[in-house]
Amino acid sequence: MHRLEVRDLRFDYEDMRMRFDLAIGTGEFLALVGPSGAGKSTLLSLIAGFDRPTSGRVLFDGVDLTASRPAERPVTLLFQDHNLFPHLCIADNVGLGIRPDLRLDAAGKARVEAALAEVGLQGLGARRPGQLSGGERQRAALALALVRERPLLMLDEPFAALGPALRRETLDLVRRMQRSRGLTVLLVSHQPSDARYAADRVAFVEQGEIRHVAPTAEFFAQPQPPAVAAYLGDVSD
């Protein structure tokens, strides 16, 4: 049985008809690449429950999630930005992942501290998101994902605003989290280099469909399907 299975999931967005089929194993790191507007973010949004499919199913460990609310799903989805509330300090933002009313006991506070330490933000809990750099904000968001303890971590262009070195650093952190917690990771990225660096498998999305899935090395090796080759171009970065 697969950890996450997307079966004939259909969704219409403006004049694009989308239809997704996908299966991911436990602890796997899958990257979704493809041109913008192809439906990558929509797929994550359907899995997280923010958008309702017209038909089809989302299964997690064989359990149908299609009707459940976002908070009930075993999923944390991180965005490029706005993953934190700007007027709450970092510790409170992370604390929301433990209790939405923020009434944390000592154990809860310790978990927040531990999560912040794990992402390298120890001692910065009292700061507000605006006082952190872009990379630190994304790491704070990862700490929030850590305390939520959801087995499926989805990242939607999370590093688009970061420079190359920071991207690597943050991807390393995601990999460490994936390994230590056995997380299943789904990453949407505009940079094929991110996929190449961190993913176990890569899926190519175009016009609302997953057109090609392959292990990372194979995905970037020649020969490629024409659509993938056209998307990646000559630049093998």
Binding site: A48, R69, P70, A71, V75, L77, D81, G97
Partner: peptide
Amino acid sequence: PGETWRLAQQLGLG
């Protein structure tokens, strides 16, 4: 931002 409402949904805020 739209992400904030999604974050609120994901965290199950009342």
